[in-house]
Design a protein around this nucleic acid. Sequence first.
RNA 1: GCCCGAAUGGUGGAAUGGUAGACACGAAGGACUUAAAAUCCUUUGGCCAUUACCGGCUGUAUGGGUUCGAGUCCCAUUUCGGGUACCA
Length: 923
Amino acid sequence: MEYNHKDIESRWQNYWRENKTYEVNINTEKPKFYVLDMFPYPSGAGLHVGHPLGYIASDIYSRYKRQQGFNVLHPMGYDAYGLPAEQYAIQTGQHPEVTTTQNIARYRSQLDKIGFCYDWSREIRTCDPSYYKWTQWAFMKMFNSYYDTAKQKAMPIAELIKELEISGTANIHAAQGEELNITADEWNGMDAKAKSDVLMNYRMAYLGNTMVNWCPKLGTVLANDEVSEGVSIRGGYPVEQKVMCQWCLRVSAYAQRLLEGLDKLDWTDSLKETQRNWIGRSEGAEMEFAVADSDIKLTIFTTRADTVFGVTFMVLAPESEYVWQVTTPEHKAEVEEYIAAIKHKTERERMIDKKVSGVFTGAYAENPLSGKKIPVYVSDYVLAGYGTGAIMAVPAHDSRDYAFARHFDLPIIPLIEGADVSEESFDAKEGKMINSCGPTLDLNGMDVKDAIKAAKEYVEKVGIGKVKVNYRLRDAIFSRQRYWGEPFPVYYKDGIPYMLDEKELPLQLPEVDKYLPTETGEPPLGRAKNWVTTDGCALELCTMPGFAGSSAYYLRYMDPHNDEALVSREANEYWQNVDLYVGGTEHATGHLIYSRFWNKFLYDLGAVCKDEPFQKLINQGMIQGRSNFVYRVKDTNTFVSYNLRKDYDVTPIHVDVNIVTNDVLDTDKFRAWRPEFNDAQFILEDGDKYVCGYAVEKMSKSMFNVVNPDDIVDRYGADTLRLYEMFLGPVEQSKPWDTNGIDGVNRFIKRLWNLFYKGDENLVTDGEPTKEALKSIHKLIKKVTQDIENFSYNTSISAFMICVNELTQQKCHNAKILEQFVILLAPFAPHVAEELWHTLGHDTTVCDAQWPKHNEEYLKEDSVKYTVSVNGKPRFNIEVPSGTVPAEVEKTALANEAAAKWIDGKPIRKVIVVPNKIVNIVI
RNA sequence: GCCCGAAUGGUGGAAUGGUAGACACGAAGGACUUAAAAUCCUUUGGCCAUUACCGGCUGUAUGGGUUCGAGUCCCAUUUCGGGUACCA
């Protein structure tokens, strides 16, 4: 029998399907293990060879854990809502559901060919009403909750209402939009609308007028993590800032818990660091600056309370409410003009244009420590959304303030001894304070760090400010003016939003005639007929964003068909949370923050038993494309080979990597590739070769460097694809895909096969294995077990290759040895392992074969060689029996020297014995 | 600008501070074959030496340092990749 991957792979894939080999159920007899891949968005382009990298890695780990006796949950599903399907629908009129379903079918057939051990009976799709019912449900719960900052957890809004009725806001400790001061009487006297508005200040999911990222081209708002460098991540369209009334999630309430939770997780330090930066905790103080000749006080936030004596002016964000309070009548026109100009710019333009700009308001504030009068400016370098939207400017020690001061010719007072501020500001937090003495506070001579502390204490003591912690993390904007997303379970009555009854969920996405906004500028759902409740109230027209459906999906896999709950208590208590999560690093500040937030909220609710969703996380690297080029001689249809191109004036042209082998072009295929190359001429090198150039780029259709896994599976088989993807390098590392080299792992499988068969003859022998063979296989068991635990799959594949070569050389066809080999190989190459397992006479599946343990006895050497070096230079070798203690080794080494105390006429200072390696004599 | 990560042959990549380059690709040579494919064997970091056997020097981005010993640890520099950006 020859190795025939097509026959073997289809046979075993059918067997696994028919026998439901990979379906799992709660089994309290066994320990659980939950391995999860980040589920894909099913794009129209299908999978390329880079997508399965992480799936293969997690599949290997799942199979390994299963063979170790764990009950492994390893599900898969689809993140089915998203912009591309909707954009496509706008262009073609095709319902996004239709294209999404098609794309999912394509993904599924591609995934099935690779032989994953997913339990497909648990598949979920975020666009499925039975799934998004629970997305809507969680949103309702958030609407009906507030965050209690004293208890540090989410609580029912009903309790807050009770408190408002009894004593107003006096005893409320809640995460809030703005600080409200309402008495119980005032509250009780409010009408429904006013009460609703007050509660919005506290709800976990609230309707708020916030500055949003508005993308006119997409016609929707975007979250901060959906925007990068002023353009939308999807599509790359410009984004502008705009105040809009939107649904928001109070993610910021969880900032501290999201930060602290990181310490307990087995994530890489760099990923944790990225999240810490995104959360952006900064400790500082809020301080009040009184405006001269008025009652107005400007509250600012600073981390450098020590620098108050160096404040020479103040700056307000253009959007700040303070602007209109302080601007004097004489300066009003100027300020208005400035703000109008700023508004016209997009975020991107504001970023590119780093020129200093600003305008004086005419107002002066009073420095609370020195008493000096300082001017108040408006400038767009101050952000409305962070801190209080107003700053105290210390030009000597902040580069932005410095630039502003220089531009407007404002005074710069150095506060740190030796700081030269003639050319640039001194931003470092070190040195001794100077020029910092006022009537009631003297910081001179103090170290900066001590001065910060002293200033904060002083400010709090005299009541001109308070110590405050600020976070960069913003609330998530949760409305999208789009069609293809989860509808909100919200209706409006007399201008007040209400939640539907839980019994009315899921609220299904309605049909529309077009996927565009209405003529009046309403979102697409405005086109839906009868988009009202049973008693005629208008339903919300926005839909939820992409991250809504992916925030709690891992919980749903535990209990995917439950109509009563997102996940039953029983299922949740058994499966707990994800033990191993595998996915790309691009979700570091989006999905992985939202998901943790969502999970913590559900934890506060008592709906789940773990407060972190993903215990261990591995970021697989990106597989880049490796493009090939041909070089066309200008104005001809002649192509010159890579190494000869310097002699000609050439244009590089991307060429399909699938007609290039080892950078050598198949010229006949090239002529057939495109009509314009039919009569192409070639200038060859080395007599007969056309060599192509190459570059590492993103894998994309336009660069003709996309390699489809289906083609690889068809040609070499799924097992070869799996082995090769892992063999390419460490899972976490990004690397270019290069199909050259795949023959190596394919040959390995064939060599393994040749240990079992020679033609039709079965070579497997019974009896006891040789000592040599035992050593080879136990070495392998040890290595592979260690490597899998460390996700170092590339080195385990090397170990497999070495072992097969050793067994081939030993002519070992022993059943006991081969059996162990096959069990070890099963996670990596499940089809061929299954086939060979049955060749060895088993009728169970290899997936359930127990993972072997290595025995150190077999690995022992009879004797050990040491290199004896003098001052690090190797001199001669010695051989001692295995297990000799270092002191004996030392003695043996020295016995070989004529004099044991002197070498080359110098005394021996030290002898270092490195186990199994080296004896170094230092003279 | 700031934060994180990386740099080893022609290529992908191995090396708990202990003989750098495992394993694989590619390349060169050879065997088998009418031929090709497939398979197998040998060589393969660079330089030098060589009839043969045995060799020698050098080498992990650059410059320093710690150490008996550094690809690995420390400091500085360069380059590349990723994240983030007026966050006060």
